[in-house]
Design a protein around this nucleic acid. Structure first.
Lengths: 254, 254
DNA sequence: AATATTAAATGTCAAATAAACAATTAATAT
DNA sequence: ATATTAATTGTTTATTTGACATTTAATATT
């Protein structure tokens, strides 16, 4: 930044000590807001909380919180997410900072959004569910407070964009999953039908999947083989561009 | 966010008026920092400023500034960029928020970074060059203050990533440019050699270029034809995935 | 026990795309 | 007239993609 205060010529450390704050600048509240996605085997879902206090009491909202004095942004986002879900080590990625002066009617607040991808099976309503959290189908989520609807829209676009190139959607699945589950997930995210043979061929080419002996019999008579992710290849090749769905760029705005 | 104050039951507007601020929360400075890229026909460059005030006097830094009371983040970034370059309507994109508690030794400050792509020919040192700005080859830019080096690294990755899929690099070129210039640009961004015939074929396929009658004679005896961008197609198909350079994902971390 | 039912799993062919590769052309300089 | 230099152009092969229908494994039914 610019507009630092001039100071006398001394050692840097001394200077810093002399200069305790930047004068004549306004300070703002900083919040993090999390867009938490899950997958029920059929459809994408989003975890929202119902506010039981004013303002906007009884309205639905993203889970968030103010950044504290000694925590980083990622730290705050992880804290908020753990408060809500009880989960740690969740896939969490910063999306964007929202800083419109009027976005919070009470007081100007900057919000840094994160999206989280969690295995919905690991999530359990906290015993002391102070947040009144609820899963919604993404398609019929209720209106949200402030600019949270815009945040969710951006988050949807972001995961569509990123999942078109990188295997992040596995973060939504349990350790063992079936090909039909995986295909349902991709089809729901992109709201499109995918040819099953091409889908499997492309998946096989990634070498990310390990076939297990066990079958999931719950969905059909024949049963579908379980697969698990090859974690090493997943981490090693995460940045590589995949092309699982046909013409992904045509689907990004749907 | 959570942790709003409870309030009496009245109309929303009344509630908001009653509730003037969020209590018991720390407020922080918010800055924007711009990573400004240019292209001299051969190499990518970055615009840095030399601080002539304490702390970190005489050190190189990104151009930045504190967010003011009534401006948005984008507004602040545009203001800062115009102050530095005199340019308006520049390609500017938010990258990321940096919020490590110790990133600024004077006072905790959140910085939201933006990258700017400008036509280096349009840039002219401001008459009153209070910022002592200077262009550096990206490869031999000096060490920067605070966490600005990390910001530049992230910005480099970001434009490599984005330019692998979208035609943003045209923002660095003048209205009229030649194919050799364009190829130099891509080769410098990805630090790789590109086969000239394949490069032109892929570019032609995008239908983004319009060939002009005029030639640029400065670089060779034969001269290279000027091209200009088809602005309508550029805007209409900006989100479409291109594949100008071979195996871009292999080059993203170089 | 044979047959029906249901969803999972599998293969082929044609079209499009990408990568590797060298010769010709247009202008100026000698 | 010839040499020089960089810009421009095309072909061939390999790979990837998309479109398309049948078989298989298990359970349910008769």
């Amino acid at each position: 930044m610019l507009e630092l205060l001039p100071s006398e010529s001394e050692t840097d450390k001394t200077k810093y000590k002399l200069m305790k704050t930047y004068n004549n600048q306004t300070r703002f509240l900083i919040a993090v807001d999390c867009i938490v996605f899950g997958f029920d085997g059929e459809h994408l879902k989003i975890l929202l909380i119902k506010r039981d206090f004013e303002p906007e009491k009884d309205k639905w909202s993203l889970m968030g919180g103010f950044v504290r004095t000694d925590e980083s942004l990622d730290g705050a986002a992880n804290r908020v997410l753990t408060q809500l879900t009880g989960l740690k080590g969740v896939y969490l990625e910063q999306i964007q900072a929202y800083g419109d002066p009027m976005r919070d009617p009470i007081e100007r607040t900057l919000s840094v959004t994160y999206f989280a991808l969690i295995d919905i099976n690991k999530y359990q309503t906290q015993i002391n569910d102070q947040y009144h959290a609820e899963w919604f189908l993404l398609k019929d989520a209720p209106p949200l407070i402030f600019d949270h609807d815009a945040m969710v829209e951006t988050a949807k676009k972001k995961i569509r964009y990123k999942a078109a190139l990188h295997p992040i959607l596995f973060e939504l699945l349990p350790k063992k999953f079936t090909i039909p589950q995986l295909q349902n997930l991709y089809e729901d995210v992109y709201n499109t039908q995918i040819d099953n043979r091409n889908f499997i061929r492309k998946l096989t080419a990634t070498k990310l999947l390990i076939k297990l002996a066990e079958k999931d019999k719950s969905g059909s008579k024949k049963g579908a083989f379980y697969f698990k992710l090859d974690k090493k290849k997943y981490q090693a090749n995460f940045q590589a561009f995949l092309n699982i769905i046909p013409n992904p760029d045509k689907l990004l705005t749907v």
